[in-house]
């Protein structure tokens, strides 16, 4: 008999592909939320594998804060072209211009929170009934309670205390008109799993994840990348360092790590030795202990 070895990455991969196919089968108008970060790149890779040789049967959607690393946008456009998937971009700037939200002011101003309105508007406009996201349960304690199929009411809200039980691999995507689902196919992956998978599958990722020289400054113990729209405090000094991104999000709230990691092997070794979570550098999570739970209830990613 043939020996069949299924390692943990293949098992996780199979689970994620199963969830993506359920989405394609149970929903009429799903989108895959794409941020340009490694998790969403892995999601696109899984979606390609799930439906090959057909194309990914749903568009990619990017909620663009306008505060990006340039490399992210280039990478996004290239990947969309390569997969042949439709790319939808919605801009936070438009939501601001429409007067629906007001830009934050002050030194820690970020458009991170404003994205929620842009996202919910897009979901309503485009009649999206399922939005696939790359959220993982190991990222954050409120996310540890997420379902694969996470129900949202007509206001896009999450009710964490009243979630549907999820058993075996049976996913209940039934909903009423105007409601939608957030679906998290890589719920069970850890940061390490994602990197090992990128390594195993040889997935192309933006160079931002590898060491490079960049002008940075330190705020509240976190190194932040300097960008034109960021305000500096008087005592903050800009220096050039060897850094890499551990997560990629809005540039205003994504910390960078001092690192010389040049290859995927280096990154895996670095993560194996690290003692801080990947979101430890995210200013958006530090606003309060339940910052993520509160944002998620309102309809955040």
């Amino acid at each position: 008999m043939d020996k069949i070895i299924i390692n943990h990455l293949r098992e996780l991969e199979s689970e994620s592909i199963h969830v993506m196919r359920e989405v394609a089968a149970q929903f009429e108008n799903p989108v895959l939320l794409f941020s340009g970060g490694k998790d969403s790149i892995v999601m696109v890779h899984l979606a390609r594998k799930a439906f090959y040789p057909a194309r990914i049967p749903f568009p990619l959607m990017h909620i663009d804060t306008g505060h990006n690393f340039d490399e992210t946008i280039e990478f996004r456009d290239r990947l969309a072209k390569e997969t042949g998937a439709e790319l939808i971009v919605r801009y936070v700037q438009d939501t601001i211009d429409q007067g629906k939200v007001v830009e934050e002011t002050g030194i820690n101003a970020s458009r991170n929170l404003l994205q929620t309105t842009t996202l919910l508007d897009a979901i309503e406009d485009l009649k999206i009934d399922a939005a696939l996201g790359g959220g993982r349960r190991d990222e954050e304690k409120a996310r540890a309670k997420e379902r694969f199929f996470s129900h949202r009411d007509e206001f896009g809200q999450w009710d964490p205390k009243n979630q549907r039980p999820e058993l075996w691999s049976l996913y209940n995507g039934r909903k009423k008109l105007g409601e939608h689902f957030r679906v998290f196919p890589i719920s069970n992956w850890t940061e390490m799993d994602v990197w090992q998978y990128i390594y195993m599958e040889n997935i192309d990722i933006p160079n931002l994840y590898f060491t490079h020289k960049r002008k940075v400054f330190k705020r509240d113990g976190t190194w932040l990348a300097l960008a034109p729209f960021m305000k500096l405090k008087d005592n903050e000094e800009v220096v050039e360092m060897d850094v890499r991104c551990r997560t990629i999000g809005d540039i205003t709230c994504t910390g960078v790590t001092l690192s010389k990691a040049n290859t995927l092997e280096d990154i895996i070794a670095e993560i194996a030795a690290t003692r801080v979570t990947e979101r430890g550098g995210r200013a958006d999570d530090k606003r309060s202990e339940a910052a993520m739970e509160d944002r998620k209830k309102e309809g955040y990613f």
Partner: peptide, 26 residues
């Protein structure tokens, strides 16, 4: 106990998933 209500009341309400790995297994 990740949810605000759980922390406030000191109880587990829901299933929480946790992850760890040793060199042998995840």
């Amino acid at each position: 106990d990740g949810l605000r209500a759980e922390r406030e009341q000191g109880i587990t309400i829901d299933v929480a998933y946790r992850y760890f790995a040793t060199p042998k297994r995840k």
